[in-house]
């Protein structure tokens, strides 16, 4: 499994698109918001938590189809499925690699982007905390969507339609956690972490069933 994670990271770096594409997309999404709603700093400060979370979510979504698609196309997935590693282990490794390539940089990039949106000073700690415990859930849920749509040509739109509803609870709790004035950010943070842990524990098995059905 370690070698699978390392290989995915290496591939992401080699193809160049990996980190940079996700981060540029995150920047653009966040940048579009003031263009759309106006540069009123008070308004921006109020909507910043939601915008940053939605931006993170969309940037994550952008790279989901690469999780299994490339390996599916060149026969690697078949070979992996017949290797001694169980499919749930493969899904775990792939989702972990996806998190390192997207979730982690997004969490870090959210800090300067928060400044652009005039995020309140006290909110930064909750922003970083909620994104760092919430993005693993995004990667694992996303891997599930990618596993389901791996056999479908041009399945990108369908993938978004399947994955975005699954992101709803994470988004609601995560964005609410960053919003200053919510009374119990620590409680919300714990709930986001709970969703992430739940996803890490169980989603790989759902991924395995989906991959198995697709490989048939």
């Amino acid at each position: 499994m370690k070698s699978l994670i390392l290989r995915d990271l290496r591939l992401a770096v080699r193809s160049g698109g990996g980190f940079a594409l996700t981060l540029s997309f995150f920047l653009i999404v966040v940048m579009m918001v003031p263009f759309g709603v106006g540069a009123n700093l008070d308004l921006l400060a109020r909507i910043a938590p939601g915008v940053l979370w939605i931006g993170a979510l969309l940037s994550c979504l952008l790279s989901l189809d690469r999780i299994f698609q490339l390996d599916w196309e060149d026969g690697t997935l078949e070979a992996l499925a017949t290797s001694p590693i169980p499919l749930s282990g493969i899904a775990t490794a792939k989702a972990t690699a996806h998190w390192i390539i997207t979730g982690l940089p997004i969490t870090i990039a959210a800090i300067p982007l928060g400044y652009l949106l005039n995020l309140e000073t006290e909110a930064y700690i909750w922003l970083v905390a909620s994104l760092s415990v919430g993005t693993p859930a995004l990667s694992f849920i996303g891997a599930f969507g990618a596993a389901i749509t791996v056999g479908i040509k041009r399945g990108g739109l369908l993938l978004s339609l399947l994955v975005l509803p699954l992101y709803i609870p994470t988004l609601m709790l995560g964005a609410q956690c960053v919003t200053i004035g919510s009374e119990t950010p620590i409680k919300l943070l714990a709930l986001v972490a709970a969703i992430s842990l739940f996803c890490i524990a169980l989603i790989p098995f759902a991924c395995a069933i989906a991959l198995r059905a697709n490989l048939k």
């Binding site: 070698s3 699978l4 591939l11 080699r14 026969g75 078949e78 070979a79």
Partner: peptide, 24 residues
């Protein structure tokens, strides 16, 4: 099992590809 496709990555070197499978 080896199917119609070789399961190798064109952006990795021969050595990297093979040591990946050795790890798997």
């Amino acid at each position: 099992y080896s199917g119609h496709l070789d399961g190798v990555k064109s952006t990795l070197t021969v050595n990297e590809n093979l040591s990946f499978w050795a790890g798997i």
